Structures are given as structure tokens and as C-alpha cells.
Amino acid sequence: MTTITEVRDGRSTGGGGGGEGGGFAGAAAAEWTKLWSLRSTWWGLASAAGLMTLMSFILATSTASNNTNEITTDDQGVVSVSGIAVGAIDLVQFVPVTLAILVITAEYATGGIRAALQWVPVRGRMLGAKAAVVAAVTAPAGMVLAVLGTAVAGPGLGRWGRFSFGDAAADVLNVGVYLALICVFSLGIGAVLRSTAGALTAAFLLLMMIPMLLSNSPIPALRHVSDSLPSSAGRHFMAAEPGPYPALVGLLILVAWAAAVMVAAIAVLKRRDA
């Protein structure tokens, strides 16, 4: 078991394995240990898997139903099986986003942030270690969720599903990258606001409500603003069909948002008292 002294010194032996490290590696090892010692992490990831299963099944069966009912205006035809999982991530993302926010806001709520900053007094290093651990957990989690959603969507779509291993592999990888970046972005929001409720509200507004409202606006300028928001950029990055800009541009916009919020979070963390 990792002791408090080991974590404070920036060293961690992990789960029974030898070795030690300091600096950023030690801070990241400490954050990794803290994250996986919480039951909320396991429950959150399990909840995300359950929600992905449910959402993918609903989206797949709804697509099949729309294609076979008497109304022709809602027909979608044959769709990508893995694309269903990509569509489901719009809602599923809020479970790992909540976990990412709690990585920092829970410590402010319990006063644990003071101990964390005593163990890792370089504040940028501490927040950077949290971001690295969040990304390291949510990227593979996102890929697993995409695989699960694809597996569930296939039977639900039946003959209306089109599966390509190449497309599925790309979708799985893209979902992992998107989820990692959006969770780092959300971690930064949590570090700036220091409130779980406030950060969740801000994340929900920025990732869902504001893009939805702006994209449906009759004013072209507002629709362009919507396309520049992080979740919209992420959708364009993950989408197979052409969008307002290439997928790579969507990825760069998403990276820029995550980096900008993390820079702001580090500045706030350095200026404020814990």
C-alpha cells in the first residue's frame, strides 16, 4: 500500500511492485493511486458502460423502427454500426466528465487540496499530474465504451447496420481521444470554479445546451460560434461525413479548448489560496 510519506515525497511503489520516482512522475503516481482508491471511480465507469449499452440500443432500434414504419420522412437507411456508439457519446460523456471534475472539486470540498499541495507544492505540476491521469484513464475507457456501443448497436440495427472494421477502429480511437480531451477540459473547469455543482453546470451548458441553442439559430454567425465550441468540434472530429471543416480542424479546436482552460486553471490555482 502506498503510504502518506511516500506520496508526500513524490514517490509511489504502486500495487506491490518496486520502484520510485519523483517530480512529475511521482505526482502522477500519487494521483493514479488516489483515483483508483475511490469507489466512485469504479461506479462511475460501470455507470458509463451501462448508459452506453442503453443509449446504443435505443438509438439502434429507433433507427431500425424509423426505416420500417409508414412515415418516410424519418428514414435514415443503412447506417454505420460504430456511428451509433459515436452518437451515444453525446449523453454518455457526462458520466466520465463528472468523474474528471470530482478529481479536483472533491479535494476542495473535503480540504484534501491542502494536503495535495503539501505533497506536491508546485501547483502546475499537481494539476498537470491530475490531467495526465484523467487522460490516461478516460482515453481507454472511451475506446472500451465505443466497442461496447458498437457491439450492442449491431443486433439492434439488423439489416440496417453497415459494419466496416476500418471505420469501427477509427471511430473507437476517435471516441477515446475525444473523451480524454473533453475530460481534461472539464477538469480545468473544476479547478477554476472549485465547485462540483458549478463545474457540472458549466460543463453541461458548454457541452450541450449552448451548442444546441446556437446551432438551431437562424443567425449564421451564431451557428459558426456553435461550430467552434468544444463538443461541436468533437462531433465534427468524430463524424465520418463532411462537416463545416475537416476532422483535423475539429481535433485542433478541441485541443485548443482543453489547453486554454488548463492554462487558466493553473493561473487561478497559483493566484488563489487553497
Rank of each mutant, 00 (worst) to 15 (best):
M1R: 10
I4C: 07
T5F: 15
R8M: 15
G10T: 10
T13Y: 11
G15A: 14
G16M: 14
G16Q: 12
G23V: 10
F24S: 08
G26P: 13
A27R: 12
A28M: 15
A28W: 10
A29W: 14
A29P: 12
A30D: 09
S37R: 13
S37V: 13
S40A: 11
W42K: 05
L45Q: 06
L45W: 07
A46H: 05
S47W: 05
A48Q: 06
A49D: 08
L54Y: 04
M55E: 05
I58M: 15
A60V: 09
T63W: 10
T63H: 05
T68L: 12
T73H: 08
D74M: 11
S80C: 03
V81K: 01
V81W: 00
V81T: 03
G83I: 01
I84A: 05
A85C: 06
A88R: 05
A88I: 07
A88V: 05
I89N: 01
I89M: 15
D90P: 01
Q93T: 03
T98I: 04
A100D: 03
A100L: 09
A100M: 06
L102S: 08
A109G: 08
T110H: 05
G111F: 11
Q118D: 12
G124R: 06
R125N: 12
R125P: 14
M126T: 01
L127F: 13
G128A: 11
A129P: 14
A131K: 11
A132D: 09
V133W: 09
V134K: 09
V134C: 03
A135K: 12
A136N: 11
A136Y: 07
V137S: 04
V137P: 04
V137Q: 06
A141E: 04
M143A: 12
V144K: 03
L145W: 04
A146V: 02
V147N: 01
L148C: 04
A151S: 06
V152Q: 06
A153F: 00
G154I: 00
L157N: 00
G158V: 09
W160R: 03
A169I: 00
L173T: 15
N174V: 09
G176W: 10
V177Q: 06
L181N: 01
C183T: 14
C183A: 09
C183L: 07
V184C: 08
S186G: 06
L187P: 04
G188A: 12
G190T: 06
A191Q: 14
L193I: 14
R194T: 14
R194H: 13
A203S: 09
F204K: 00
L206F: 00
M209Q: 08
I210Y: 02
M212W: 03
L213H: 03
L214C: 10
L214V: 02
S217D: 15
S217V: 05
R223W: 09
P230C: 01
S231T: 06
G234A: 02
R235F: 07
R235E: 06
H236A: 12
H236D: 10
F237V: 09
A239C: 02
G243N: 08
L248W: 15
G250M: 07
L252Q: 11
A256H: 13
W257I: 05
W257M: 02
A259Q: 13
A260S: 15
A260Q: 14
A265Q: 12
A265K: 10
A267K: 12
L269Q: 13
R271Q: 11
R272F: 05
R272L: 12
D273W: 03
D273M: 13
A274P: 09
